[in-house]
C-alpha cells in the first residue's frame, strides 16, 4: 500500500510541475494564439540562468534572475517576432516558434556542453518522510508552490483588471480592443507570465531528484503538451488537471511496468499521448476547455 501511495504522490507532485509548463502553453495560446514550440527552451533558459548566477549571488537572488530572464525572453519573442509576422496566423506563428527554439536550444546546448550544472538549491538531496513514504523535498516544495501559484493565477484572472482584461481579449480580441483593452499589453503579460511559470518549472525539473541543468530538460516541455491538450487548450485549470492526470498515469504505468509488460517495453513513454488521443476522441474540447474553442 505504501508503495502505491509513493507512486501516486510521486506522480502527482511531478504532475504539478508539468502543470506549470502546461499552464504556460495555455496562457500564451489564449493571450496571443501562439502554439509556443519554444516553451521548452524557455524552461531550460530559466534553469540555466539560475545555475550560472547562483555561485556568485546566491540561490534566491539567482532564482529571481532566472524568473525575470525567462519572462523577458518571452516578452521579447512576442514583441520582436510574433507581432511582426508577415502572415499572422497560428500555423506560421507555431513554425516561427520552432525557429526560435532551434536558436535558443543550440546556444544553450553550446553553453552547457558536457557539464551537468548544479542548481545549488538549498534543499539539496533532502527527503521528507511520513508514514513509511519518502518524497524528495524539492518535489514537496514544487507541489506547494504550484498550488500557491495556481491560486494566485485564479485570483488574477477572476478578480484583477489585468486578468479580466486578458480573459476578455482571449474570448474576443476585437471587441475587447474596442472596449479599451490594449491587446499588446495583454499579450505581453501573457508571455511574461508563461516565462515565470517556465522558470519555476525549470528550477524543480533540474533540482533533486534530477541531477542538474542538462540540455535534455527542454524535452520535458513535450510531456506537458498532452497535459495541456487534454485539459483543454484555453483553460488554466484544465492545464492543472491535465498535468495531474499525466503525472499520475505515467508514474503508475512505470511503477507497475512488470504487470503491464504485455503492452510493450517502455509503455510509460507513450501513455501520456494515448490518454490525450482517447480524451480528444470523447471530448474534442478537452476536459475543461470551452465548447466554442472547437466548432464541429
Amino acid at each position: 500500500m505504501s508503495y502505491f501511495l509513493t507512486q501516486v504522490l510521486n506522480g502527482l507532485s511531478f504532475g504539478l510541475v508539468l502543470s506549470l509548463i502546461a499552464a504556460g502553453f495555455a496562457i500564451v495560446f489564449t493571450s496571443t494564439g501562439v502554439l509556443n514550440f519554444a516553451h521548452g527552451s524557455v524552461v531550460l533558459a530559466g534553469a540555466y540562468l539560475v545555475a550560472v548566477t547562483q555561485p556568485t549571488i546566491g540561490f534566491w537572488p539567482a532564482v529571481l534572475v532566472g524568473i525575470l530572464g525567462a519572462a523577458l525572453i518571452g516578452v521579447l519573442i512576442n514583441a520582436l517576432l510574433v507581432r511582426n509576422l508577415a502572415d499572422p496566423n497560428p500555423g506560421t506563428a507555431a513554425i516561427l516558434m520552432l525557429g526560435v527554439d532551434i536558436l535558443l536550444l543550440t546556444e544553450l546546448t553550446r553553453r552547457i556542453g558536457n557539464r551537468v550544472l548544479p542548481l545549488g538549491a538549498p534543499w539539496g538531496a533532502d527527503v521528507v518522510r511520513f508514514g513509511g513514504i519518502s518524497l524528495p523535498t524539492g518535489r514537496v516544495l514544487a507541489a506547494v508552490l504550484a498550488v500557491v501559484v495556481f491560486a494566485g493565477l485564479w485570483f488574477m484572472f477572476s478578480r484583477t483588471r489585468v486578468g479580466i482584461g486578458m480573459r476578455a481579449a482571449a474570448a474576443d480580441g476585437p471587441t475587447a480592443s474596442l472596449m479599451g483593452i490594449r491587446l499588446s499589453r495583454t499579450g505581453a503579460t501573457g508571455w511574461a507570465l508563461a516565462g515565470v511559470l517556465a522558470a519555476l518549472a525549470g528550477i524543480f525539473l533540474t533540482s533533486f531528484p534530477s541531477p542538474g541543468v542538462v540540455p535534455s530538460v527542454a524535452l520535458s516541455a513535450f510531456l506537458a503538451i498532452p497535459a495541456w491538450v487534454l485539459g483543454g487548450f484555453d483553460s488554466v485549470p484544465g492545464a492543472v488537471l491535465g498535468g495531474l492526470v499525466i503525472g499520475l498515469v505515467t508514474a503508475l504505468t512505470v511503477g507497475y511496468e512488470r504487470e503491464l509488460h504485455f503492452l510493450g517495453a517502455g509503455f510509460g513513454e507513450v501513455v501520456p499521448y494515448l490518454v490525450m488521443i482517447i480524451v480528444l476522441l470523447v471530448r474534442p474540447q478537452g476536459l475543461l476547455g470551452s465548447k466554442e474553442a472547437v466548432r464541429v
Binding site: 491538450v229 487548450f233 513513454e269 499521448y273 464541429v296
Partner: peptide
C-alpha cells in the same frame, strides 16, 4: 473530422509517439 486546425495538429502529435512505440 471532429477536430480542426491546431487541435487536430496536437492530437496527431500523439500518433508519432504511438507509432514509434509500435
Amino acid at each position: 473530422s471532429r477536430l480542426r486546425g491546431i487541435y487536430l495538429g496536437l492530437a496527431t502529435l500523439g500518433l508519432v509517439f504511438v507509432v514509434r512505440h509500435l
